[in-house]
């Protein structure tokens, strides 16, 4: 037994893992620490305070960031809702509907947004809206977000559905349930953790997007990331640290929720 364990171990792999975690977290933690800096300069440490958080909510640029945050939130909720619905239907088609025409190409289509480089998607979408004469604004951002949210919502939903045997639905059908009832009353509740997990991931992905939003947003319309980018172009100010920390925490909370929901479902099974 001791020998078996030994074979799994390579000298130096544990320190490498710690190094990996350190590299991943150090910059984020440092920004979090400096967001509490009570100083006008981002380099000098002037003690702990919440002044930059106050500045984010009530300062000079507060209105700008508030509006951007509202835009981001509306788009993220809408994009996550629509893409989760689409992804749930797609997963049912791919995993529960037997064979149909164009199935394998449909699978490639679902994953297409992950294959095409983001900047190419951004360019194509901008050109598309410009060609059909659609004014860029919140709607165009939303359309673009739905597209790239679909594969992210699809992953946990399909993974979950794969783990559910179809005997429960078959039993329901044998007892004269319609297929819609079997879906709504059996399959959907069983795969709810996957759907919630998918929704949360789509929500974060939409909330985080910068490149595509930057291309398809109209003049004057900002989401949180584009507003932050615009501000950073003038130089990193302490209020950027505070707002980054807030957004970072939102992402971490949502990912943790998504992870816990996914696990909760597995334990039940």
């Amino acid at each position: 037994m001791a020998k078996k364990l030994d074979l799994r171990r390579f000298p130096g792999f544990l320190p490498m893992t710690w190094l990996c975690l350190f590299l991943l977290y150090a910059p984020l933690i440092i920004v979090m620490i400096y967001s509490f800096n009570d100083s006008n300069s981002i380099t000098q440490w002037g003690g702990v305070s919440l002044r930059w958080y106050k500045d984010v909510f009530w300062g000079l640029e507060a209105e700008k960031f508030k509006l951007a945050a509202i835009h981001s939130l509306i788009i993220a909720v809408a994009a996550a809702t629509v893409s989760t619905t689409i992804a749930t239907m797609a997963a049912t088609a791919m995993l529960r509907a037997g064979r149909f025409r164009g199935k394998s190409i449909s699978f490639a289509l679902i994953n297409l947004p992950l294959m095409v480089p983001e900047i190419v998607t951004a360019v194509a979408t901008l050109i598309f809206f410009s060609t059909i004469g659609f004014t860029t604004g919140l709607t165009t951002i939303l359309m673009a977000h739905i597209v790239f949210c679909v594969p992210f919502a699809y992953l946990p939903i399909a993974a979950r559905m794969q783990g559910i045997e179809d005997v429960y639905e078959q039993a329901a059908l044998d007892l004269y349930a319609t297929r819609y009832q079997a879906f709504r009353l059996i399959l959907l509740p069983l795969m709810a953790p996957g759907v919630i997990s998918g929704f949360l991931l789509a929500f974060i992905i939409s909330l985080d997007d910068f490149i595509i939003t930057n291309f398809v947003k109209g003049a004057g319309i900002e989401t949180l990331p584009t507003a932050i980018f615009g501000a950073v172009k003038q130089g990193i100010k302490p209020n950027i640290m505070a707002i980054s920390t807030l957004l970072l925490l939102v992402s971490v909370v949502f990912v943790t929720l998504s992870y816990l929901v996914g696990r909760m479902g597995q334990n039940k099974k």
Partner: peptide
């Protein structure tokens, strides 16, 4: 092999095609 919703595949995948 699971084909509880056989025949509906085309309809269920349609929104994906429309959007993407």
């Amino acid at each position: 092999n699971t084909s509880t919703y056989a025949g509906l595949g085309g309809w269920l995948i349609l929104p994906t095609w429309l959007v993407i």
